[in-house]
C-alpha cells in the first residue's frame, strides 16, 4: 500500500510524531531506528514479543526428549553394571540440559524469524538506507485522502525529509 515516508534526525521529534500519528490514526505506522531506544518502545506500546513462547515450548520438548532418548536406549539394550541403575537420571540430566539449550535457543531464533518476517528477499517500500546509519524514519501506510494530513503532521514535527513511497 502506498504511503508517506519521513526522515528524522532527532529522536524526540520522532517520538512526538509517532505519538501524534497514533492519536490521529492516519494508518499503519512502521518506525525505523538505527538502534534500540526505550523511548520508542514506550511510545509504540507494542505487546511483549511472543518469541518467549517458542523458547518455552522448544526448551520443554527438547529437555523431555533428552531424558526420554537416554532412558529408552538404556532400557532397550541394558548395560548391566554391578547392581547399578540401568537408567540413571543424574547423568541423563546432562543430556537433557544440553538438548534443552540447543533446541530452546534454535526455537528462539526460529520464533524471532517468524515474528520479524525474516528473511526478506526484497526491501520494503518505505525503507531508506539512511535508516540503518544515522536517520530515524516513519512510514505510514494511508489512503490518498489522508496523505496530506500525514505530510503536514511530519512537517510540524520537524521531519528532515518527507516523500511519497509506492
Amino acid at each position: 500500500m502506498p504511503g508517506i515516508v519521513a526522515n528524522f534526525r532527532e529522536l524526540d521529534r520522532l517520538v512526538s510524531a509517532v505519538r501524534e500519528l497514533q492519536r490521529q490514526r492516519l494508518g499503519d505506522v512502521t518506525v525505523y531506528s538505527p538502534t534500540v531506544h526505550h523511548e520508542l518502545e514506550d511510545v509504540i506500546g507494542a505487546p511483549t514479543s511472543p518469541v518467549r513462547r517458542f523458547t518455552l515450548v522448544g526448551g520443554l520438548l527438547s529437555a523431555s526428549f533428552g531424558y526420554w532418548i537416554s532412558i529408552w536406549t538404556s532400557d532397550y539394550w541394558p548395560l548391566v553394571t554391578g547392581g547399578k541403575a540401568i537408567a540413571s537420571w543424574i547423568p541423563y540430566t546432562i543430556i537433557s540440559f544440553e538438548m534443552m539449550v540447543l533446541v530452546g535457543a534454535l526455537s528462539t531464533v526460529f520464533g524471532m524469524f517468524i515474528n520479524s518476517r525474516l528473511p526478506k528477499l526484497v526491501l520494503d517500500v518505505g525503507f531508506d538506507p539512511r535508516f540503518t546509519n544515522g536517520d530515524y524514519g516513519i512510514y505510514v501506510q494511508c489512503p490518498p485522502e489522508k496523505e496530506r494530513a500525514a505530510q503536514e503532521l511530519f512537517g510540524q514535527h520537524g521531519a528532515s525529509e518527507v516523500r511519497h513511497a509506492r
Binding site: Y32, P34, A46, A105, L118, L123
Partner: peptide
C-alpha cells in the same frame, strides 16, 4: 536477511537476544 531496523524487528530481536543470552 533483509533486515531494515523496523520497530517490529527490534521488538523481536531484543527479546530473542535476551533469551539467547539466558541460554548461553
Amino acid at each position: 536477511l533483509g533486515w531494515k531496523n523496523t520497530d517490529r524487528e527490534w521488538r523481536h530481536f531484543t527479546r530473542a537476544y535476551l533469551f539467547l543470552a539466558a541460554f548461553s
